[in-house]
Nucleic acid binder design. Structure first.
Lengths: 200, 200
DNA sequence: CTTGTCTATGCAACGAGTTGCATAGAAAGC
DNA sequence: GCTTTCTATGCAACTCGTTGCATAGACAAG
């Protein structure tokens, strides 16, 4: 399980509550890992009971108290152990690719809108990543000599940027392919809807 | 659940047994989806009981009998319905990225071997994908005018190829970053092991 | 003649991840 | 006054996915 380790890394970068972690997982850590608050609370509780995390009740004003978690000694050791273990290289799980192959048995043109929607989502993500890069690493307000932790965060972010750029280029390829199939008339066995391609 | 839909697509492309599906999921379909045989058998059973698949017992010689599944009418309809529903754009789950950020709290140089191993795995995958592309789509033995189903399979494969190329380039970036950090001496707080960088 | 590999299917148990719901005070907008 | 939004935590139920194990005949290598 890597959620555990993602939490360790995030808490080492900065201690925080389950709620704060959940928000980080929507932002920076979310570049390469996602988790809901339920999952996070459950795992935090387990990790605390195992002694890898320490908790501190922090009373607050104008908002509910929070439990601030930080990494205890055994947690650091557990992370270090994991870092020295080999892990399986990832394999993709891409629903959209399943849909694209499935379109052969339906109307390929009907997928154009969906693919365009994904294109917009990935373009937005790319814009956010690039803004984050400028803010934290390459812009004038960024710290001049980055420390090792920042260098590593930056290279991970560059990975996210490369991923989004690649995906956007591929979606352009998919759109061109779908439109070419539509132009030479559909085939599979599904319905044929005249579908004026929206301006790309 | 998209495993169900991946199975429908695969069985529409060609009917087959659970075992055969499992092997396809290691190859072509595996470019964008993975599943173990357990998962596949379980889901096949459920889909059959729901009437979306039809089974046929096929006796064989020299090997155990098999159950050949094919898509029934309701299965086709279910796939069509799914194709017209919007799906969530994917989010990454990249363990290696977690490790890279975690390396800030350990010895960054110790990760070089691991990253190089991933580099090799992705290079191998790329080579396999390119060989498959030549065999099925762009080589002299490939069918001259591709039918729509093949065009769509090809664009999905091009996605796999683009993904592997992007990943390999990023891993090069990661290696350069790790080595640069190693050269200027480690930092995080972890152990410092002299670690002669293996030849790139 | 034993070990290992390949085809082929399956159960049982567990762990990971999602969805729906509940609570509760504070602030902000209508 | 009412609804919505934000912070903050959590339970319960469910589905998805993985791991370990079992069976069983055929075939190949040592």
């Amino acid at each position: 399980m890597a959620l555990e380790h993602a939490i360790l890394v995030s808490l080492l970068e900065k201690p925080g509550s389950g709620y704060e972690l959940a928000r980080r997982f929507e932002r920076s850590i979310g570049y390469f890992w996602t988790a809901t608050h339920q999952q996070i609370y459950r795992v935090l509780k387990r990790m605390e009971s195992e002694g890898v995390l320490a908790v501190r009740e922090v009373p607050q004003q104008g908002r509910p108290d929070k439990k601030e978690y930080s990494v205890a000694g055994p947690g650091r050791a557990a992370l270090s152990r994991w870092l020295h273990e080999p892990i399986e290289p990832e394999s993709l799980r891409h629903d959209l690719a399943v849909k694209i192959r499935g379109a052969a048995f339906d109307d390929p043109a009907a997928l154009v809108d969906e693919v365009e929607r994904h294109h917009r989502v990935h373009s937005d993500r790319l814009a956010r990543y690039l803004a984050g890069e400028l803010r934290d690493f390459t812009g004038p307000d960024a710290p001049a000599p980055l420390d090792p932790g920042q260098e590593l965060q930056h290279v991970v972010l560059r990975g996210g940027i490369a991923y989004e750029r690649m995906t956007i280029a591929w979606l352009d390829d998919v759109l061109a392919t779908l439109r070419a199939l539509g132009a030479t008339t559909g085939t599979g066995g599904g319905p044929q809807g005249g579908h004026p391609g929206p301006s790309a």
